[in-house]
């Protein structure tokens, strides 16, 4: 299974961060998820980043971009994917908690 991101549906609630962190550590935290919210709060600019094994999905409001590890983003948007590199990559778990607890369908599982 893989995760598909639809940033337009995201409401920035962070349930995915909680869900994925729970999957990894069985506690409630936002710190150990492979998925991470980003937000420029004053501008209402927000989206989702998902770290995968050898790249990163940047779900920005203006569209989805795949960024390879160690390569610069081709977008000049302020949000950066960098902090999430510290996280464990998505292991494509089945029946993923991030998807199950996303209330809007912004994250979905695809084959």
């Amino acid at each position: 299974m893989a995760i598909k991101v639809d940033p337009e549906k995201c409401i920035n609630c962070g349930a995915c961060e909680l869900g994925c962190s729970f999957y990894r550590d069985e506690v409630f935290t936002t710190m150990s998820a492979s998925v991470m919210m980003y937000r420029e709060e004053k501008k209402n600019y927000f989206g989702i980043m998902l770290k995968r094994e050898d790249d990163m999905i940047l779900g920005r409001p203006e569209g989805v971009e795949i960024q390879k590890e160690g390569e610069e983003s081709d977008s000049d948007a302020g949000a950066s994917a960098k902090p999430i590199l510290l996280r464990e990559p998505c292991d494509n778990c089945k029946n993923a908690m991030c998807v199950r607890f996303c209330p809007t369908g912004s994250l979905i599982e695809v084959d």
Partner: peptide, 13 residues
């Protein structure tokens, strides 16, 4: 109107 946004883990934006 731009976008809707939610509280922490609040499905109701």
């Amino acid at each position: 109107l731009h976008r809707v946004e939610a509280d922490f883990n609040n499905p109701f934006a």
